Simulated scan of single mutants.
Amino acid sequence: MSPVISIADLRKVYRVRGREVTALDGVDLHVHEGEVYGVVGTSGAGKSTLIRCVNMLERPTSGTITVDGLELTRLAGQGPRAGRELRAARRRIGMVFQHFNLLSSRTVQDNVELPLEIIGLDRTERRRKAAELLDLVGLADKARVYPAQLSGGQKQRVGIARALAGDPKVLLSDEATSALDPETTRSILELLRDLGRQLDLTVLLITHEMDVIKSVCDSAALMRDGRVVESGRLADLLATPGSELARELFPLGDLPGTGRAGTVLEITFQGDTAAQPFISQLARTYNVDLNILGAAVETIGGRQVGRMRVELPGSFEQNVVPIGFLREQGLQVDVAGHRTEAAA
């Protein structure tokens, strides 16, 4: 199945005070239908530039962007007809902004109606559509108030309703929760996830918070210095030895000293294996004393997933059988190292 969003070898170079600054450096990204896909990274990683290129608010220097089968980069700067096609394509891409971007002089309903005015929808149809969308985001009773009378979470709900006005196939979210408190953030993320399922949307969001990725995303990409350094479905990333995203999503902390020799294992579990008492079974079966050095467990997409770091006494060679037992239980087991007494 072809991706709804396909980005290939994307580059964006700015000229700043006579020198070139590369914001995107050969980005490849593929988002499939119905996915909630998160792009995470620190400030300056290129996330905002990437998402603004997807709807052509920023024109890429090179590379291709295809959304719902239409190559948007081909249309940019190709004359009036291509310009009309690009504008029509943009209407199928909703955008939710970090700072809401609501017009303070317009009521909530009028803000939602704005994109419908731009495309020339008649007043009766605009009113009907806006009322329907406000009900969808839980703000039917706020239609006649002004943005200054709303909380931050309510303003973002208005922004989401406005982004949905054109019946988009794709919804882009540019740090939509970074200005909100944790409780409001959770409610907005749940709304985005539920709307994605209800309206059959493909959602691409950017964030600097790993909690956002854990809460709502099916897949994720880690960006650094304008490049995607790792990407994939969360379930696959968790099963990938050495995954940086998995470590960031489920941090186990630094390896503490124990004062004894041992073999350190990092165990990843998800789905049915998360409910199995594999640690106690291992201890009873092989009469071994395990030292639990760290653990992180979360629920992602309705499935319990997590990582655990344990230490078995003795060398790797002495623990081959217990390690094999854990792998037979369907667990991913990576040997993180062997510590001698001198190094402990």
Score class of each variant (00 low, 15 high):
residue 93 I to K: 12
residue 94 G to T: 01
residue 94 G to H: 01
residue 95 M to F: 15
residue 95 M to R: 08
residue 97 F to G: 13
residue 97 F to C: 14
residue 99 H to E: 11
residue 100 F to E: 03
residue 101 N to L: 04
residue 103 L to H: 13
residue 105 S to E: 03
residue 105 S to I: 13
residue 106 R to V: 01
residue 106 R to F: 10
residue 107 T to E: 12
residue 107 T to H: 02
residue 107 T to W: 05
residue 108 V to F: 09
residue 110 D to N: 13
residue 111 N to Q: 01
residue 111 N to E: 02
residue 112 V to S: 00
residue 112 V to Q: 03
residue 112 V to I: 01
residue 112 V to Y: 06
residue 114 L to G: 05
residue 114 L to P: 14
residue 115 P to K: 00
residue 117 E to W: 15
residue 117 E to A: 12
residue 117 E to P: 14
residue 118 I to A: 13
residue 118 I to Q: 04
residue 119 I to N: 04
residue 119 I to K: 01
residue 121 L to D: 02
residue 122 D to G: 12
residue 123 R to K: 11
residue 124 T to S: 08
residue 124 T to A: 14
residue 127 R to H: 00
residue 127 R to K: 10
residue 129 K to W: 12
residue 129 K to D: 12
residue 129 K to V: 15
residue 130 A to I: 07
residue 131 A to Y: 15
residue 131 A to H: 15
residue 131 A to N: 15
residue 131 A to T: 14
residue 132 E to W: 04
residue 132 E to M: 12
residue 134 L to S: 02
residue 135 D to S: 13
residue 135 D to F: 09
residue 135 D to R: 11
residue 135 D to E: 09
residue 137 V to A: 02
residue 138 G to T: 00
residue 138 G to N: 01
residue 138 G to Q: 06
residue 140 A to R: 13
residue 140 A to S: 02
residue 141 D to I: 08
residue 143 A to M: 09
residue 143 A to C: 02
residue 143 A to D: 10
residue 145 V to M: 07
residue 145 V to N: 07
residue 145 V to P: 15
residue 147 P to S: 00
residue 150 L to E: 06
residue 150 L to C: 01
residue 150 L to Y: 06
residue 152 G to R: 02
residue 154 Q to F: 03
residue 156 Q to Y: 08
residue 157 R to N: 08
residue 158 V to K: 00
residue 158 V to E: 03
residue 159 G to N: 09
residue 160 I to D: 06
residue 160 I to P: 13
residue 160 I to T: 10
residue 162 R to P: 12
residue 163 A to I: 05
residue 164 L to I: 03
residue 164 L to F: 06
residue 165 A to D: 07
residue 165 A to W: 01
residue 166 G to P: 10
residue 167 D to H: 10
residue 167 D to R: 10
residue 167 D to K: 10
residue 167 D to W: 09
residue 168 P to Q: 04
residue 169 K to P: 10
residue 169 K to A: 11
residue 169 K to S: 03
residue 170 V to E: 04
residue 170 V to Y: 04
residue 170 V to D: 05
residue 170 V to S: 09
residue 171 L to D: 03
residue 172 L to I: 07
residue 172 L to C: 00
residue 172 L to A: 00
residue 175 E to I: 01
residue 176 A to D: 00
residue 177 T to H: 13
residue 179 A to E: 07
residue 179 A to S: 04
residue 179 A to G: 09
residue 180 L to M: 03
residue 180 L to V: 00
residue 181 D to E: 03
residue 181 D to P: 12
residue 182 P to K: 11
residue 182 P to Y: 11
residue 183 E to H: 15
residue 184 T to N: 13
residue 184 T to K: 15
residue 184 T to W: 11
residue 184 T to A: 01
residue 185 T to D: 02
residue 185 T to F: 10
residue 185 T to A: 06
residue 186 R to N: 01
residue 188 I to R: 05
residue 188 I to G: 04
residue 189 L to Y: 01
residue 189 L to G: 11
residue 192 L to F: 11
residue 193 R to K: 15
residue 193 R to E: 13
residue 194 D to Q: 09
residue 194 D to R: 05
residue 196 G to M: 08
residue 198 Q to H: 07
residue 198 Q to S: 14
residue 199 L to W: 04
residue 199 L to K: 05
residue 200 D to V: 05
residue 200 D to S: 09
residue 200 D to K: 12
residue 200 D to E: 14
residue 200 D to C: 10
